[in-house]
């Protein structure tokens, strides 16, 4: 456990050692605001809820999260520190988990900094704060799932751009797998069980359920098992590279 903590601390500090963290946070907050107030017309809807704010999050995460995850392994590979990291006496799972948790914590910081909008909505009206808390937690969970995908893909390459682009595409597929775009394609020929299995992988469906204030255990299990699955794949991929 102490090695997870050591890896976590280094990785988390690495975000703030360069302008990356600050640039990311500023642009993230700005974009969140722009979408909520201008495109989502937050004021015009006259509703004391953050539904609009949260409804854009999956789409923004689609680009922001792969940008956080892309460097996790690709950079280590490019600079050669991978060799150092993997020859230190740390179990591989601890390295993978430590890195993931650091990126997740960083995302958490960025998400937490959107708090002014929560204050705003409470100032303007009487929102259901329980729903908002649930939505924030759901958002964090979904971010974790995107991150696990991004980290896993980052482990396959030393090129951060490739890691970013591939992660965006994979995350996109997971986001919309419940949408007609995907479902119609399968519905014509695939058995019903397959279609419903595919649509059940949709981040949107699970996330929307949470933002309605309904915390269903199945939605939580979905995100947690997806994170676990991709972290396991991450471990396997890093280990496979040792074979050369």
């Amino acid at each position: 456990m102490s090695s997870v903590w050591a890896i976590f601390k280094r990785e988390f500090a690495a975000y703030f050692a360069t302008p990356l963290a600050y640039v990311f946070i500023v642009i993230f907050l700005f974009t969140m605001g722009a979408f909520t107030f201008y495109i989502g017309r937050f004021y015009e809807t006259n509703m004391a809820s953050l539904e609009i704010f949260f409804s854009y999050q999956p789409w923004l995460y689609l680009f922001f999260i792969p940008a956080i995850a892309m460097r996790l392994w690709a950079e280590e590979r490019r600079t050669g520190t991978m060799e150092l990291l993997l020859t230190l006496p740390v179990p591989l799972w601890a390295t993978v988990v430590g890195k993931f948790l650091a990126a997740w914590a960083f995302t958490g910081v960025a998400l937490a900094l959107t708090f002014p909008i929560w204050i705003t909505v409470n100032y303007l009206g009487h929102p259901d704060n329980g729903v908002i808390v649930a939505s924030y937690l759901g958002s964090l969970l979904m971010a974790g799932a995107y991150l696990a995908i991004g980290a896993c893909i980052s482990a396959t390459t030393k090129n951060q751009v490739i890691a970013f682009v591939v992660s965006v595409v994979v995350c996109f597929l997971f986001t919309i797998s419940g949408a007609p775009l995907v479902i119609d394609f399968f519905q014509a020929w695939a058995p019903f069980a397959l279609v419903s299995a595919i649509s059940s992988f949709s981040f949107l469906t699970h996330f929307l359920a949470i933002t309605q204030g309904v915390i269903d255990l199945r939605d939580l299990i979905f995100f947690f098992s997806l994170i676990t699955l991709f972290l396991a794949a991450n471990i396997v991929l890093v280990d496979l590279k040792r074979v050369g």
Partner: peptide, 25 residues
Amino acid sequence: YLPEGAPAYPDMTPRQFLRFVAEVR
């Protein structure tokens, strides 16, 4: 072990880097 090319995290100072290695060890 000193790997080929002596890689180290470029953003860290030697003090931070050695602290990290010490902690991991």
